[in-house]
Amino acid sequence: MPLQNIIGLSREELITHFQAHQIPKFRVQQVWNWVYHHGVTNFDRMLNISAAMRQQLQEVFVIERPQIATSQVSNDGTQKWLLRFNDNQEAETVHIPEVDRGTLCVSSQIGCTLTCKFCHTGTQTLVRNLTSAEIVGQMMVARDVFGEWPSPVGNRHVSNIVMMGMGEPLYNYENVKKALLIIMDNEGICLSRRRITLSTSGVVPMMQRCGEEIGVNLAVSLHAVRNDVRDHLVPLNKKYPVEDLLDACRHYPGASNSRRITFEYVMLKDVNDSNADAKELLRLIRGIPAKINLIPFNPWPGSTFECSSAMRIEEFASIIQRAGYPSPVRTPRGQDILAACGQLKSASERQRKSKLVEAGTPMAAA
């Protein structure tokens, strides 16, 4: 039997595994601290555990991260890692350094369930969901790169997480939930839920659960204010139209003026960038504690859209701001290495379904 990876297991699962192998329950806390606070990669470094117990652990478990297949650094300091998993499938993770923070853009799927027309990832069919271990592993790899073990208390290179990489997080909900709860655990990586943002294209039935069970900040990939336009840009809209999506946002647990819902809006020339679009956007979000992130379209090979002009984006933003909503224009980062918003894609291909079933790999429901 293959060894069980400890990374990605919840505390409850770890207790169950330990009990099955006659390992005392109190060892869970020790191992958890070594893995997630100190970032160790082998049991021999767990110095408060006896040599005999470390040997027993090694016979059952491994501590395994994804491997960095390639690493690229943009001329603006953004880093992109192509991470390879045990089945040789790959996904991309991006680190964006800023003056007051460092944000890690984390993937939840290899490929994507959705086919958003302006997004490079959407041109890659879904290969599979990432496991909780593979999601947590992205954070741990970044910590490895920056030498941030043990978990630092003060300034961090990785101070924030956005679930905005490859995939739709709410179509891999259980694995995303488990991973984020591990990352937020205050006896390990210890990242505050206020520093984590989950982005969804609008999987309406899962939004309430996300707020109640994970409690992280919510970002919604809106991108259009009329159903006909959004049906084209974000085909998921045909299932959960704008009105239903905005209603779910109004009822998102924890949303307030101090924890606003972020609406992401990619600026596409002559598609969704008119003054009338801006005014309709204001009407739609009335009563929702919100900010609007305007994203200049980042081109990718084969894309047919053009970015709105700087003047058009400025006018659109002004309409939103005059109504009292924050409306920052996102500065493109990592464009030269295809690491900017909407540019991520890997070369992984979907295996035959029979192989995925044999491997026990969960697939997302479209």
Rank of each mutant, 00 (worst) to 15 (best):
P150D: 10
N75L: 10
Q29C: 05
I6M: 15
V204A: 04
L338Q: 15
L246V: 13
N227P: 14
M166E: 15
N175Y: 02
V220Q: 05
A310L: 12
H120N: 11
P24K: 15
C249D: 03
E349A: 08
R250D: 03
M140L: 15
S50A: 14
G111S: 11
L198K: 09
R27E: 09
D76H: 10
G188F: 07
Q89K: 14
N160Y: 12
M53N: 10
S159Y: 09
L294C: 04
I161F: 15
T115D: 14
G122E: 03
P253Y: 03
D273M: 04
S108W: 13
H17F: 12
A224E: 01
L284F: 12
V176I: 11
E134T: 00
V136N: 07
M140T: 06
T113E: 10
N33A: 13
M140P: 08
L57Y: 06
R194L: 12
E12H: 06
V234L: 05
A366G: 11
A20C: 05
L14P: 06
S108F: 14
E90C: 14
I214E: 00
E315I: 03
Y252Q: 07
G8S: 11
I15G: 05
L114K: 09
D100C: 08
S354C: 02
L170Y: 11
M46C: 12
P205N: 09
P150W: 10
Q351V: 13
S108T: 15
Y325R: 06
T200L: 02
R283D: 12
T331K: 15
N293D: 09
S151V: 10
F43N: 00
G8C: 12
A310V: 13
F305E: 00
I161Y: 15
M184S: 08
E213G: 00
R230I: 02
V271Q: 03
N75D: 12
T103R: 07
R283Y: 10
Q321W: 05
G122P: 02
V329Y: 02
C210D: 01
E90I: 04
S71T: 13
H120T: 00
S256D: 07
H120Q: 11
D244C: 05
C119S: 01
E98S: 10
M363G: 01
P2V: 15
G122V: 01
I214N: 06
A366W: 12
T262V: 11
K25S: 11
T125N: 11
R193P: 14
N48G: 08
A317L: 04
L170W: 11
E314S: 13
P97L: 08
Q138N: 08
A323C: 00
K269M: 04
G287F: 05
V94M: 12
R286Q: 13
V40I: 15
H17R: 12
V225R: 01
L222Y: 11
A219I: 04
L181V: 01
E264H: 08
Q55G: 10
E59A: 13
M46L: 13
S346C: 07
L245N: 01
V266R: 02
S327P: 06
H21N: 15
Q351N: 13
L236D: 05
I261F: 07
S258D: 14
A219W: 08
K178I: 03
R27T: 03
M139L: 15
R54C: 02
P299F: 01
F305C: 00
E358A: 09
I7N: 07
M46D: 11
G165L: 08
C119E: 01
